[in-house]
Design a protein around this nucleic acid. Structure first.
Lengths: 402, 402
DNA sequence: GTATTTCGTCATGGCCGTTGACAAATTAGT
DNA sequence: ACTAATTTGTCAACGGCCATGACGAAATAC
């Protein structure tokens, strides 16, 4: 009674419109007939859907395209590069970043500011971010783009309402409602953990080829100051009952080992966290001394650095073998700023995984492949923007102009 | 062209029929109006759906029911206790079991045979099981029930096709196609890991109350000879990319500890597996000497037994804290034959979890609750039967008679 | 140049949920 | 006891949406 009963028919139409959009987003230019074959509707039905999307300005027609096969060539359909777009933002420990992505997935506007956000006042940071978003939106408007949604990547735990930062120790924020403090003219605001968005960027990126049978599953490891991970299982991000899933950094690696700030003992973070690794390499952690410095030393062949990374890799491998035994993912992806350490990190990780999962997981002959994400540190920002784009494609009704 | 294009309209109808059935399965007797309110359709639409299901013999009307509120009382609808039913079977290490469940979820026929299946010939065991299924189906027919599907619980890894047992070390089976070797007159045959079915039984059982906001997430621990677990995340069972998810027994607990049969070191199984615990308690593992014997000693206050269980609980707690940090479940459930050890197992498990996850998981004040499943060793069999029932309810088209 | 194949469109039809109204059955109030 | 109010289940009319089948259009194959 309260709400006017969701009309199952309209829902079906919306879903089919959305399926056309997603099919074109995934498969490049396609003809109506190809779309129909892909989503299992008839050509006639797809025609009406496409007409509606063309009139709404979400699709454009390219002239007849392919030849090489018999029959009349189809008119190629493409998502527009004008009109609605997604906006992504990233609040890092030492930078702010913003980018605007059109429906095709191309980044059209991008800006980064180096700032020091550790222990900062949320209001100040969010004001600065708001300014960046404002100028980015203006530049987008110059390209004929209008923002349809904003997604913000933060290095911390986000409540399941996707609006409030519960705990971001590296920023010093607790219980900050970002959605309320950011511009309202960019559409719905979604806040998400940066590791999660990095994993989604990996899942949705063009280089990522899903396995033959259905959606992918992988563990995506990243490291800002702590060690985080994101779990993509059957093509879906696992957020956890409270939104805390993926705390790889606190998997016990040596149960009675070093005490950890979390109150436990022997957590992965105390062996492979940034601070621990830097110390092991003989570097004094501090502002400016981050993983980048370690990477340089490794590239230079510094023995202490190499040894420290190897030890961290071993610890990471032990924790990951737990995750692999538990989740049976198709692969493990090293992303974020850790990706740059991959040349030295992957061998020990792979070694531990091979030791500890080969037979356990049912005698599979080849252990889980471990790869480094080519997106590297760009993952969270790109993932945020694409998250906004996909959210827009999910609701065509709100996008159709006129 | 090959297949006649799935008609999206029929699919909608099927889904709505199924939603009516599931609503009644979950919510006991309801009126048409109540069903309509529950699934968000109009009363008129639900009326046509219900008529179809009544004519098909899947529902029955009870006389007008509730009073106590104003207005005309609705005629109560109920799933039939005749007609289609689900069949569950369990192949254990030392028993075979079969049960028949009607659409309401009531067990109507049940049979257990003690047999020794360790290292057995699959053909012999499956022949015996086939005989039990045959007599169970006959008894079901006497009650007016006709089997609509069979689900088999096995203590081993099952391929993602849900038909083939890849590896069941306790039975000594490898690559056995069960679906092909069982009676074909019981409907579609599904094979599933017993731990997974135990977890689903827990998820679907009447005593299980889902959290206010959406579906539940939990880790369900069980132990046949090895230590297995099943992961229910957001109301869905996680099977893993190869069907091997939940191998809790091979999480590293002491990375350089005891060598494990899997080739790794310090796996949970080497500390908390049945054989390890029995030895630690001073019992010689062997046929007939199983966890039951240990339970008796604990009940009798045997110090060695109590100490062994406590140590196992500590190891289990360490492994589980890894799982909890990674997955952020709403609770941990101890099921299967382990449930009987719960009085002695839960304290050390809870202690380790409290130490190692309290702050890590974002400062939540109360650690994850750990409970014992009241279903105990019945879980897998009941889960199998209910799995078959739910599969039937998912496809009303195949159930409607005449 | 004709046959074949494929594409996109059109008119028709069927299915299905909604809308709005109505009779039936019960409770609340006088 | 009688009326008003409320809720239930049903019916007829309506509208939306996809399927069907046929058609012209545009390319290739022989």
């Amino acid at each position: 009674m309260a709400q006017p009963a969701p009309k199952a028919q309209h829902e079906m139409r919306q879903r089919n419109l959305s399926r056309v959009l997603h099919t074109l987003a995934a498969g490049g230019p396609l003809s109506r007939a190809a779309v129909a074959a892909e989503i299992g509707l008839t050509r006639a039905a797809v025609s009406t859907l496409v007409d509606e999307l063309l009139r709404g300005g979400l699709l454009v027609e390219q002239g007849p395209g392919r030849s090489g096969s018999v029959g009349r060539p189809g008119t190629q359909l493409l998502l527009t590069d004008r009109g609605p777009c997604g906006v992504g933002a990233e609040i890092g420990v030492d930078h702010l970043a913003v980018c605007v992505m059109d429906l095709r997935g191309d980044v059209r506007v991008r800006a980064v500011h180096a700032t020091r956000n550790q222990g900062s006042d949320p209001a100040v940071v969010l004001h600065a971010l708001g300014g960046m978003l404002h100028t980015a939106a203006e530049r987008a408007a110059g390209l004929g783009l209008r923002p349809a949604g904003l997604t913000v990547a933060v290095p911390g735990l986000v409540a399941r309402d996707s609006a409030t930062v519960l705990r971001a120790p590296n920023l010093g924020w607790h219980g900050t409602d970002l959605a309320a403090a950011l511009p309202t003219d960019l559409g719905r605001v979604t806040v998400e953990n940066e590791a999660n968005l990095g994993a989604l960027a990996e899942l949705w990126s063009a280089h990522h080829v899903p396995p033959e049978g259905g959606p992918d599953s992988f563990v995506h490891v990243s490291a800002e100051i702590g060690i985080g991970s994101a779990l993509v299982l059957d093509g879906e991000l696992l957020r956890g009952a409270h939104g805390f899933a993926g705390e790889l950094g606190h998997l016990p690696v040596r149960p009675e080992g070093r005490p950890c700030s979390c109150g436990g003992r022997g957590c992965l973070e105390t062996y492979a966290g940034e601070e621990a690794v830097l110390r092991a390499a003989g570097l004094e952690p501090g502002p400016g001394v981050r993983l980048g410095a370690l990477t340089e030393r490794c590239e230079a062949g510094d023995r202490d650095a190499l040894r420290a990374v190897k030890q961290a890799g071993t610890a990471l491998g032990i924790a990951l073998s737990g995750a692999v035994n538990l989740l049976d993912p198709r692969q493990v992806v090293i992303g974020g700023s850790l990706a740059r350490l991959a040349p030295w990190l992957l061998p020990p990780v792979g070694r531990e995984l091979a030791r500890r999962t080969a037979v356990a997981a049912g005698g599979r002959s080849t252990p889980v492949p471990v790869t480094a994400s080519p997106l590297g540190p760009d993952g969270p920002l790109l993932g945020a923007a694409r998250f906004a784009v996909r959210a827009a494609l999910d609701e065509p009704a709100g996008l159709l102009r006129s």
